[in-house]
C-alpha cells in the first residue's frame, strides 16, 4: 500500500519559481489546523507510538499489561533464526526485484524512446500493471502458475522444455524466483515511465556531438545517456527498493509466505507475529529493524552515488 500511494498519483504540476513570502501567519495557521491536526494525531502519532511499542512487550489481548522492556526485543530478534531467514529472503527479494526492474525498464524505455512500430501498444501495455489492484495481480499470476490449469506449464510442455507439471509457487527452490518475476512485472510501469521521461530530457545536441566525434551507439549510451540519466536512476531505484522491501499484499496473495516460509518477506513475518500470534511489541521491533536496514542501505547507496557523481 505504501508503494501504491506513490505509484497511483498523477504528478502534480510543476511549481513556478517564486520568491517566498511571509506574513498572514495566524490565518495560515488556522487554515492548516484542520489538516495538521489529523496528520499529527493519526499519522505522526501512531508512527511514534509504533516505534515506542518496539521497546515494550505489548500483546494483542485487550487487557494485556504492557511494560517497557528496553532493548530486549532487539536482543530476541538478533537470536531469532526465523527472523534471519525472513530477513535474508527479504534482502534477496528487495535487491533482485529492484535490479531486474531497473534493467528491464531501462531496456523498455530505450525501445519506447525510439521510432518503432507497435510503440503505442507497448506504451499502453506497460501502464496496465500499474492500473491493476495488487490483489488482482497476485490472483492473475496464480492462474498463470497453476500446476494443472496454468498456461506456463502448458506452454513449456508443448515446447518440450518440461516433462511434467511444475507447481511453481509450492516448490521450495522455485517459489521465490517465481514470486520475484511477478514483482518485476508489477513494478515495471512506474520505473519505465520515469526512465522514459528522463531519456526524453537528455539534450539531443549531446548525441549529435557524440556522433560528430565518432562515438558508436554503445559509447554514446555509456558516456552520454547513462551519466545524464543518473539522478533519475538513483531516485527511482531508491524508491523501488523501499517499496519492494515493504511489499505485503502481492506476496501474501501469491503464497502467503510459503512453501515452508521460503517466500516469507519481513512484512509477512511481522504481520504473522502481530496478528496471528499477537506479539505487537515484537512485530514493531521488526518494523523498526527494517527501517534501520533500509535507511542504511539507501544511505550507503546514495553516498556512493554522490561521491561518484562528483
Amino acid at each position: 500500500m505504501t508503494a501504491a500511494a506513490g505509484a497511483y498519483a498523477p504528478a502534480p504540476p510543476r511549481r513556478p519559481r517564486r520568491t517566498p513570502r511571509r506574513g498572514g501567519g495566524r490565518e495560515m495557521f488556522l487554515l492548516m489546523l484542520p489538516a495538521l491536526v489529523p496528520v499529527l494525531v493519526f499519522s505522526v502519532g501512531p508512527l511514534l507510538y509504533g516505534i515506542f511499542l518496539a521497546f515494550t512487550d505489548a500483546r494483542s489481548g485487550r487487557n494485556a499489561e504492557t511494560s517497557f522492556v528496553g532493548l530486549a526485543n532487539f536482543g530476541d530478534l538478533l537470536t531469532d533464526g526465523d527472523f534471519w531467514t525472513s530477513f535474508r529472503i527479504g534482502m534477496i527479494w528487495g535487491i533482485s526485484v529492484t535490479v531486474l526492474q531497473f534493467l528491464a525498464s531501462l531496456g523498455l524505455a530505450l525501445l519506447l524512446d525510439r521510432d518503432l512500430r507497435l510503440r503505442g501498444l507497448a506504451r499502453v501495455l506497460a501502464l496496465v500493471p500499474w492500473a491493476m489492484p495488487p490483489v488482482v495481480i497476485g490472483l492473475m499470476w496464480r492462474l498463470v502458475y497453476h500446476p494443472n490449469a496454468g498456461i506456463l506449464n502448458a506452454v513449456l510442455r508443448d515446447a518440450g522444455l518440461l516433462g511434467h507439471n511444475v507447481d511453481w509457487l509450492n516448490d521450495f527452490a522455485i517459489a521465490l524466483p517465481a514470486v520475484i518475476v511477478v514483482g518485476v512485472w508489477t513494478g515495471m510501469p512506474q520505473t519505465t515511465v520515469v526512465l522514459l521521461a528522463g531519456l526524453q530530457n537528455v539534450p539531443r545536441e549531446l548525441y549529435e556531438a557524440g556522433q560528430v566525434d565518432g562515438a558508436g551507439t554503445w559509447r554514446r549510451f555509456w558516456n552520454i545517456t547513462l551519466p545524464q540519466l543518473r539522478p533519475v536512476i538513483v531516485a527511482i531505484t531508491s524508491l523501488d527498493f523501499v517499496w519492494n522491501i515493504n511489499q505485503f499484499g502481492l506476496v501474501y496473495v501469491l503464497t502467503q509466505g510459503g512453501p515452508g516460509g521460503r517466500t516469507r518477506l519481513p512484512m509477512l513475518f511481522a504481520y504473522e507475529e502481530a496478528f496471528r500470534f499477537g506479539f505487537f511489541g515484537y512485530a514493531s521491533t521488526l518494523g523498526v529493524a527494517i527501517v534501520i536496514v533500509v535507511l542504511a542501505v539507501l544511505g550507503l547507496y546514495l553516498w556512493r552515488q554522490m561521491r561518484e557523481a562528483n
Binding site: T2, S43, P46, L47, G50, V242, A270, Y271, V288, I290
Partner: peptide
C-alpha cells in the same frame, strides 16, 4: 511516511 513499513502504523 513512504519509508516506514505499514506494520509500524
Amino acid at each position: 511516511s513512504q519509508v516506514f513499513p505499514v506494520i509500524l502504523i
